[in-house]
Amino acid sequence: MRRSRFAAYVSSLLLAIGVTLTGAATTQAAESAAEGGYVALGDSYSSGLGAGSYLSSSGDCKRSTKSYAYLWAAANSPSTFDFTACSGARTDDVLANQLGPVNAATTLVSITIGGNDAGFMDVMVTCVLQSDSACLSRVNTARAYVDSTLPGKLDNVYAAIRAKAPSAHVVVLGYPRLYRLGAVCLGLSETKRKAINDAADHLDTAIAKRVADHGFTFGDVRPAFTGHEICSGSAWLHSVNLANISESYHPNAGGQSGGYVPVLSANA
């Protein structure tokens, strides 16, 4: 009996130490990332479209004070914070318009990019307005682009980031699955929802491969969003938002703070 109690005590002690060390490591990593400059690049999932509270100075880029980038910077106080992510951005837009603040003093870069190149919104419009077969055809076209053309586009962006910030830690965040499957849900058919989710997985897999080849870090947000997809009853993503149609199929404030921020924090 005493041995059993002693073993339980040791087990609890080791668990507490492990939790403490894990927390300390996470805090230390965040402090290290915050010692230099942080630059947040990317598309609408990085700008925070869908989260509201947009910076008036950002115009159509819709940069939000509730975006993961803004929230992380507020919590960690990097020496400088430059927020150039822009709604609608593609890889070429990042190269042309977003890399200005990235330099040798940059210690952390975050980015989501690739969804618009693959035709994300056109896929959603097709799947919402047209038949199952039309949706599947458009998804397959997007998947083919991801296989044939997107890798080279991503390589161009990642190489440019590394050239401008040789010592920066680069965290490339992925995209969530949009729908919970197997749930009673008005709107898209199960066939369409599954095809869209599978396409998100396909895109994330392609991005993760290029990220690994460049020595960057991939932040997979799919586990964090599990249970918070559209049709889940606790969604962190907008469905069709008639009040602001551009916010449709983007993370809301909860998706940014509960989905993206922890993944960036864990990988920064």
Rank of each mutant, 00 (worst) to 15 (best):
L21N: 14
L154S: 01
G219N: 03
A118K: 05
Q98Y: 05
Y175E: 10
R177S: 06
Y9P: 08
L13Y: 02
V128L: 15
L15P: 11
G50K: 07
L13C: 04
G187F: 00
V172N: 09
Y260T: 13
G36A: 07
A29K: 03
P151L: 02
K62P: 05
P166G: 06
H250Q: 13
H228C: 11
N241H: 06
Y54T: 07
I245P: 12
L186F: 15
T141A: 11
I111P: 03
S131K: 01
R90K: 15
Y158A: 02
K209A: 15
K194H: 09
S4Y: 12
R180Q: 15
W236E: 00
A159H: 05
N252A: 14
I17K: 06
V10D: 01
D201P: 10
N97T: 14
S12Y: 15
T26S: 07
N241Q: 00
S232Y: 05
N76V: 00
R3E: 10
S133C: 11
G42E: 12
A74T: 14
A69H: 04
G182Q: 14
A195G: 05
S58E: 01
R193L: 06
D204F: 14
C86V: 03
Y54N: 09
K153P: 09
P223M: 06
Q130Y: 10
L99C: 03
S133E: 15
A235W: 12
Q98R: 02
R180D: 11
Y9W: 13
S265E: 13
L154M: 03
A142K: 00
D198W: 15
V19M: 11
L41N: 01
G100E: 14
T65K: 07
A224Y: 01
R63E: 00
V157K: 06
R2P: 10
L99T: 00
M124R: 14
A104Y: 04
Y70L: 08
D93M: 00
G88A: 06
G50Y: 10
R5A: 12
S232E: 05
Y158H: 02
L129F: 03
T126F: 04
Y175F: 08
Y68G: 01
M124V: 15
L129D: 01
L21G: 10
A268D: 13
P176A: 00
T22H: 14
D204R: 06
V10I: 01
P251W: 07
N241E: 06
T27H: 08
V128F: 09
Y260D: 11
D201V: 15
V221D: 01
E31N: 10
N156C: 10
Y179G: 11
C185G: 01
A163V: 08
T217C: 09
C185H: 12
G215S: 08
L49A: 08
